[in-house]
Amino acid sequence: MKFRSDIHNISLLSKVAGTLSVVGKIGWLQLTPSHLQLRVLSTSDNSQSQVWATISSSSIFSDPKITSAHDDIINLEVPLDTLHRSLKSAANSYTSASIKLTKKEGIPRLSVIITTETAASMNHAKIVQDIPVRVLSPQSVAHLCKPVVPRPGCAVILPPLNQLKGITDRYVKMVGVNGRIVVEGNNNGVLRMKLDAEAVKVESEWRGLMNPVVGEDGGMEWEDNEGDDEEGEEELNTQEKERFSKVMVDSRDWAKVVRVSAAGKRVIAWLCNNHSLVVYVFMDEEGDNQATINYYVSSMVV
């Protein structure tokens, strides 16, 4: 098992690692010749959520050399904050960077090697950051795959994220950490956030949001049920457009979703009525699926 590559975009990798470290401490990193995939499970008391980040190999690595006994796929468990930390300090000022899988003191590590120019002498200084990792066997990750969701009742582009974040933080304060927040939206560009706590009832509504066609951006998957009528979006009548799809999520999960969303340039939320919330975060400009984060949150039973 060997992995070694130069990194040409430290900040993207650092951003993804930092974003995902909001969700959980440890992530599953899958390195393949074509892409890098990072998955994190959120450990909340009464709900389940998971985040998948997929980055194409070429958008981070240059000239990666990866070999393993299992189709050149390497599965690692990595501490996300450590990974983020090791990349963050170097992201601003590096002349070259590389990453490799090593073993030091009996612990397998991802070594990030950064050379940087010193301000004083313009000489090169070498910084090595060793991140402890655990190598996972292919069997132990074989059963892991992205969750399957039904065709969403509503797909909506989230409102400006700094605005959403400010409001969400207030909601979380009001409802407490284990509170429930209802998010509902329709295909007429309306998104609502509702909170019904013991002492307070709050509702926020955004109008005029965009409803992208389900699946217009690549990398989105859903499972159509047999019974569903296969009407196209344009055939929705006014009544159907107004119909709200609703999910209820843990307030802390929602806060995490919003924080993760803030990392993206374009964020689409899928509301699968009473089933789940899926948020697609595109790290790059529209149409570029080189780096995406998918956030799956299951809706709580009302």
């Binding site: 000489n123 200084a125 910084i127 090595v128």
Partner: peptide, 11 residues
């Protein structure tokens, strides 16, 4: 995280 920094004496 184990960090190592190698500096030139000129620094």
């Amino acid at each position: 995280l184990q960090t190592s920094i190698e500096l030139d004496l000129i620094e």
